[in-house]
Amino acid sequence: MMELDLDDFTTAVAARGAQWQAAGVQWQLHYGPTCSKSSAWVECTTARHLAQLIVWTSGEADLEVGDISTGAITITRYEMSNAAELTACFDTLTQWLTDPTPPA
């Protein structure tokens, strides 16, 4: 696993923010307390989905996506070893939020 800099996560959220807003996604960035395994997360809302991507400085991440109409929740756990894997997390989140046929 990689040691994740939460500033990199913040930069990635900001880079996606305009795309999300243009697609009608409301989002908000949060930070947990500073500790041995600090975290940050982004919460996103669309007419169809509620989603949260949380990352820890340890390189772990959880993507939780709820389907508003069915109540179904999909949880994907990541153990990142490089920055490209963080990008992949954001790609998956963005697909859930903006694609009419999100990942299975």
Rank of each mutant, 00 (worst) to 15 (best):
M1F: 06
M2T: 10
E3L: 10
D5F: 15
D7L: 14
D7W: 05
D7E: 15
V13W: 01
V13E: 03
A14V: 12
G17L: 07
A18D: 13
A18F: 09
A18I: 11
A18H: 11
Q19A: 15
A22W: 02
A22R: 12
A22H: 02
A23I: 06
G24V: 08
G24E: 07
V25P: 01
Q28Y: 05
L29S: 08
L29N: 03
H30R: 06
T34L: 06
K37V: 13
S38Y: 03
A40I: 02
A40G: 15
W41R: 08
W41A: 03
W41H: 08
V42N: 03
V42Y: 06
C44L: 14
T45P: 00
T45E: 14
R48E: 14
H49L: 06
H49T: 09
L50H: 15
A51Q: 09
A51S: 11
Q52H: 00
L53C: 07
W56L: 09
W56N: 00
T57C: 11
E60N: 12
E64M: 11
V65N: 01
V65L: 07
G66T: 12
D67N: 15
T70N: 08
T70W: 07
A72H: 12
A72R: 12
I73A: 01
T74F: 03
I75E: 13
I75F: 05
T76V: 15
T76E: 15
R77A: 13
Y78D: 05
E79S: 12
M80V: 02
A83P: 02
A83C: 03
A83W: 07
A83L: 14
T87N: 10
C89R: 00
C89M: 01
F90E: 05
F90I: 04
D91R: 07
T92W: 00
T92D: 04
T94H: 13
T94G: 06
T94F: 08
T94E: 11
Q95C: 12
W96F: 15
L97D: 00
T98G: 04
P100K: 05
T101W: 00
P102V: 04
